[in-house]
């Protein structure tokens, strides 16, 4: 395998890992493992949440450096898990370039769950958390509707490439507007529970987990970046919820 092919394979796998929600240290470790397993003498990899830099040296050849900027990130842990399997597999069994590329392409095109299931999942999260925080059945049905609304809103906003914070502000806005309205119409008695339950759909669970795990692994740069992202998302949700609450309260008296 030439140095170009080797760095290409490692880079493709790293990009799939990073853009689908793996921790930064996992991306670095897997890419390093792959390079060494495929016969590199030295491999230096630097990863932050938006960029991958890889520099590979083969025995008796000039080192090669590649950079890739990651523009869009989504969460698809199936792909992370599959690439993880593949990188372990490479270490035990020798493979050639073509097979590896085919494997990577297969993993990259694994379909995620169908869209309606995602919408239902959002609605279900919202409903379950409303019940979890002590809401009645009627409250949870309002939560169900809010969940659907938030998912649709997030998709529309992401189609226009709105930033994460604005998306979350609008999400919080929808949650509290619907909850305050439902309380005003007499559909429910405790709008606080509905709001708390439905903003749980926006909670950046993966960002929190990844930031803590990156910091433990010694990757302070990425860990802090993810942690700040999680904090800002939390602040955005609170800001979005606060606006209708303070504006609509005098009218509905909730």
């Amino acid at each position: 395998m030439t140095v170009t092919q080797l760095s290409h394979v490692a880079m493709e796998m790293g990009v799939i890992l990073l853009s689908n929600g793996a921790e930064t240290y996992r991306v670095e470790e897997s890419m390093h493992r792959i390079c060494i397993a495929l016969g590199a003498k030295e491999a230096e990899i630097f990863v932050v949440p938006t960029t991958i830099i890889i520099s590979v040296t083969l025995e008796g050849e000039v080192p090669l450096t590649r950079t890739r900027r990651i523009h869009s990130r989504k969460i698809d842990l199936t792909k992370v898990s599959e690439i993880n399997h593949l990188s372990r597999h490479i270490c035990y069994e020798p493979t050639n370039y073509k097979d590896l590329l085919a494997d990577i392409r297969r993993i990259d095109t694994i379909p995620s769950y169908p869209y309606y299931l995602h919408v239902l999942a959002f609605a279900f999260i919202s409903q379950m958390f409303t019940l979890f925080f002590g809401g009645s059945l009627m409250d949870s049905c309002v939560g169900f509707l809010i969940g659907i609304g938030i998912k649709l809103q997030m998709d529309i906003m992401s189609r226009f490439e709105a930033n994460v914070f604005f998306t979350n502000i609008v999400g919080g806005l929808i949650a509290s507007t619907v909850a305050v309205t439902a309380a005003g119409l007499g559909l429910s008695t405790n709008m606080n529970t509905i709001i708390i339950g439905s903003i749980m759909t926006l909670v950046p669970g993966l960002a929190i987990t990844n930031s803590i795990r990156d910091i433990i692994a010694g990757d302070y740069l990425s860990g802090l970046a993810k942690g700040v992202e999680a904090l800002l998302i939390g602040a955005a949700i609170a800001a979005g919820v606060a606006v209708p609450l303070s504006l609509l309260r005098p009218f509905w008296g909730g």
Partner: peptide, 22 residues
């Protein structure tokens, strides 16, 4: 033989203090 995040991120969410923030 899969990443820890798969189990950890999902299990952590019910413990996130959403009520406290609100």
């Amino acid at each position: 033989k899969s990443p820890t995040t798969i189990y950890l991120a999902v299990a952590l969410i019910p413990l996130v203090p959403g009520g406290g923030i609100y």
